[in-house]
Design a binder for these strands. Structure first.
Length: 892
DNA sequence: CATCCGACATTTT
DNA sequence: AAAATGTCGGATG
């Protein structure tokens, strides 16, 4: 049974009306209980429930049918049942046929939905079928639960108040959610009297939330109004103190509550919000409410471990070193305190403020540590000051209204929590209400505003650290506004910038900001900004202005606690003004001290490899494959080919094999129509073929780009239609990074190479020996782009720049011999595919040997012996490359 | 004309 | 659900 099966079973078994007897049996069936056990459950022999009418399946679920409208009570009964505990029940579930209420006893998470929606909630029950939901070890489960409750609340409210989901009302809805979060947090931390808000809900919200709207409205109005100006409010609302700080000042609309919405709100109120991390939940709430991030559900918030990867090497580690040095001297410690008070943190893409929150928390923690130490070594000189770390030293820019609001709230909560820790140690704390001024968050477009205006340049004693995780967006995904932003940042300063990822604009502005100032910057980015074309085109402009890379985290997989993670590989690059201190390079949990960190994030000189149209070492021309541009109309699966041959055998000469990356690597069979101009009349005479040609014409005419529309003129052909040739060497353009050698294949004239291959038409076989070498793989892996972490072969960046010595004819001949040897060994293993043959764990010994001989042979032609390791390979290749480029410049 | 790219997309396990 | 691994079309220079 797999996950899809469970989903289907839920859809099938819970489609009809509710039957209290059949329900638990259906549930048991849906989670894959064996038929034998289902019979026993039916007969009652296996039912371990201690509740009348209940059904309990050991270790799985405990079910109790609820009276109409009483699901909450029934759920409580289930959770308190002794059998639930002793029988290790995972999920308690009840329904009255209209509403469903369930609780995961392990995680504590609850789920409420309509009976009809049960099938859409099957994910909640997956643990019963043996599929555990992901939970990271290093982050707080309370955050996740809180977010999930709030997300559910948000959904339920929008469902009950469809007009609140409209764009024009979004700000009001956002504000409402922020206020709810404030209340939940405040009543658990003593800012509001204990459980005041929860009591307001249970006492005045009605049984199923009928009067929740009025009750919450009264509470909000009270908090927005000083006590002496309140009138017309119910008496109980007087318990709510006046909260200013802008949080409740503007409007105070409250939506109508459905029963489900009310349940989720009470569920959220029942949690202990003291333990909430403002850094995480802030961004998750934001993504719940932000329509753009809505589908991404917290995908892009930066986890605390990742934030620490940025701010640790950026300034915290250095600060810790200073504290360590000063540890025994009060005056030195005071100097560090003074320094901490002058540190400013600036996140130009702050979202809901998690970088700022974590930075604030870390600085306050260090301050508390120093103050504690000062009391030990210099008693009697108590600090007058409460804390020298001011929220006004934290600057942010955020484009969306709700996120900016959340950032202010999150910073306030962080301050409150830090004050509470301070009180734990020193026993004093300033009053929490009314709210004071918070962080300096500007709602604006970071690529348009002058950063100096948001975060004034540091004076002699100050330090500014830029940190953040700006949005990543490839050139093809940017909208017109974002492209205009790119123009605004780069135009006239940098060439070829239109191909950059959007995040590059933040790097550029950050580099400009820190230049010649007591400031440095580190941002999270997609790894593509340190690969291929971006390394060559972007970084020389950043490093050219007397800026260096002080530290970097090489590619790591994006990960946070959101349900669905963004699929991207990231890097973090720290930029600074030149310094003597060590340069730190992090990778796979290791840290190395580098002499220099270059734009590919390796410890080497700042040489970048630029794309060129022809090989600068005289290698044969490598062409781009043929792009169908046909919406699939000119392509044929093996079945379609057979079909076509059945009805129109005369189409045979128009059909060729079609190979992209997959077809080369995994031996997949695919065909296409390949029609030369003089075959066109024949082709059109076959109705089945002419139909496909017409379909291609129509598809092209409907394309967005001009090039596509222009191609409608010759709908019988692919975009590329190379001259006839006798054979070709194919190099897949994207392939797995795990293989020890790049896949490469030699094919005859009967094959069309798609745009997913780079092609050497009619080239000598010694080229194949080059491509199949370790040396070439190392070069490609370093200077070409990647898709995630997989190799992306580029002719202009990789092949045309690949340094080779001037081979003699004998050398070429022996390389050809070596290439054929590899092909022969492969043939011996027929019908194994390249994917199977080059699986790092299963590669056959003879093939490995053939490649090793090829490597030894080739490398000896470079330096008279094989290279010792990849470092030596790269060093040598880069030197040859740089020499060549220098020689060409001289010649030009 | 000729590409490099994808806070991915789709398949495989 | 998580891991593996390469489609397809196009904006850009």
């Amino acid at each position: 049974m797999n996950v899809v099966d469970v989903g289907e079973a839920f859809g099938r078994l819970f489609a009809g009306d509710f039957d209290p007897k059949a329900f638990p049996i259906a549930l048991a069936e849906a989670i894959g209980t064996s038929n034998a056990n289902i019979s026993k459950l039916k007969s009652g022999a296996m039912n371990r429930s201690d509740l009348p009418g209940g059904t309990l399946l050991n270790g799985k679920f405990h079910f109790l049918p609820a009276e109409s409208g009483k699901t909450e009570e029934a759920l409580e009964t289930l959770c308190e049942s002794k059998a639930t505990k002793t029988r290790k029940v995972r999920v308690a579930i009840t329904t009255d046929g209209t509403a469903v209420a369930a609780r995961d006893m392990k995680s504590g998470e609850a789920r409420f939905c309509d009976y009809a929606e049960l099938k859409d909630n099957f994910g909640f029950f997956l643990p019963l079928a043996g599929f555990e939901r992901f939970k990271a070890a290093d982050e707080n489960p309370v955050d996740i639960r809180a977010t999930s409750h709030l997300a559910k609340l948000y959904d339920a409210l929008i469902k009950a108040n469809p007009e609140w989901g409209k764009d024009e009302n979004r700000h009001v809805m956002n504000q409402f959610m922020t206020r709810i979060v404030f209340c939940l947090f405040a009543e658990d931390t003593g800012i509001l009297p204990d459980n005041l808000f929860a009591r307001c809900l249970t006492d005045y919200g009605g049984n199923a939330g009928e009067t929740a709207q009025e009750a919450i409205l009264a509470a909000f109005t009270a908090m927005a109004t000083p006590p002496d100006k309140r009138n017309g409010l119910p008496k109980w609302a007087d318990d709510f103190p006046y909260v200013n700080g802008g949080l409740f000042s503007e409007g105070n609309a409250v939506p109508v509550f459905s029963r489900t919405a009310f349940q989720y709100l009470k569920e959220a109120a029942g949690m202990d919000w003291k333990e909430i991390n403002p850094d995480i939940f802030g961004s998750m709430i934001q993504s719940i409410a932000d329509p753009k991030a809505r589908s991404e559900l917290g995908m892009h918030y930066t986890s605390v471990p990742n934030i620490l990867k940025v701010i640790g090497p950026l300034f915290l580690d250095d600060l810790d070193e200073a504290i360590e040095k000063a540890w025994t001297k009060a005056s030195a410690l005071r100097a560090v305190l003074q320094r901490i008070s002058k540190i400013r943190v600036f996140d130009p893409a702050c979202g809901s403020g998690n970088f700022l929150v974590v930075s604030y928390r870390e600085l306050r923690d260090r301050e508390i540590r120093i103050l504690k130490r000062l009391e030990e070594i210099d008693p009697g000189h108590a600090m007058e000051m409460f804390s020298a770390v001011s929220l006004s030293n934290f600057h942010g820019i955020e484009i969306t209204d709700f996120a900016a609001e959340t950032a202010k709230l999150a910073l306030f909560i962080a301050e409150y929590q830090a004050n509470a820790r301070f009180a734990d140690v020193f026993g004093r704390m300033p009053p929490a209400l009314p709210l004071r001024d918070g962080g300096h968050i500007v709602r604006d477009n970071a690529l348009r505003v002058n950063w100096d205006a948001v975060c004034p340049p540091p004076d002699l004693l100050e330090e500014v650290y830029i940190a953040g995780n700006p949005p990543f967006l490839g050139k093809a995904q940017q909208d017109a506004g974002q492209k205009a932003d790119m123009d605004h940042v780069f135009d006239g300063e940098v060439q070829n910038y239109r191909a950059f990822d959007l995040v590059a604009a933040w790097y550029f502005k950050a580099a400009n900001y820190i230049k010649k100032r007591n400031a440095s910057a580190a941002l999270v980015a997609t790894n593509s900004i340190c690969q291929g074309a971006s390394s060559a085109n972007l970084w020389p402009h950043l490093l050219g202005q007397n800026i260096e890379i002080g530290f970097a985290h090489r590619s790591f997989k994006w990960r946070n606690n959101a349900a669905a993670n963004a699929a991207v590989i990231c890097v973090i690059v720290g930029m600074r003004n030149p310094k003597h201190s060590a340069k730190r390079l992090f990778h796979d949990g290791m840290e190395i001290l580098a002499k220099n960190i270059n734009p590919y994030l390796i410890d080497a000189q700042n040489t970048v490899v630029r794309s060129v149209g022809r090989s600068i070492f005289g290698l044969p021309f490598m062409a781009f494959g043929c792009m169908p541009y046909d919406a699939g109309n000119l392509l044929l699966s093996p079945e379609e080919k057979v079909q076509l041959m059945d009805v129109a055998p005369e189409a045979q000469p128009l059909i060729k094999r079609f190979m992209g990356s997959q077809e080369v690597v995994r031996g997949i069979e695919r065909y296409c129509l390949w029609i030369s101009d003089d075959q066109l009349a024949d082709a059109n005479a076959i109705p089945e073929v002419s139909e496909k040609i017409e379909a291609t014409r129509t598809a092209r005419l409907n394309m967005k780009d001009k090039a596509g529309i222009a191609l409608a003129d010759r709908p019988h052909q692919f975009r590329e239609h190379p001259a006839p040739h006798s054979h070709a060497i194919l190099v897949p353009s994207v392939t797995s990074e795990r293989r020890p050698y790049l896949p490469v294949e030699r094919v005859g004239a009967d094959v069309v190479a798609s745009n997913l291959n780079q092609v050497l038409y009619d080239a000598p076989d010694w080229c194949l020996a080059l491509i199949a070498s370790k040396l070439h793989l190392v070069w490609i892996a370093t200077v070409c782009g990647k898709l995630k972490s997989d190799f992306r072969y580029s002719s202009t960046l990789g092949w045309n720049t690949f340094p080779v010595p001037d081979f003699t004819d004998e050398q070429k001949a022996s390389l050809e011999e070596s290439a054929r040897e590899i092909l022969l060994v492969r043939a011996d293993h027929h019908p194994k595919t390249i994917a199977q043959l080059y699986d790092p764990k299963k590669m056959p010994d003879d093939l490995r040997q053939a490649h090793r001989r090829n490597d030894v042979l080739l490398e000896s032609m470079y330096i008279g012996r094989p290279f010792r390791n990849d470092t030596e390979r790269l060093e040598h290749l880069f030197k040859r490359y740089a020499d060549r480029v220098a020689a060409m410049k001289k010649g030009a």
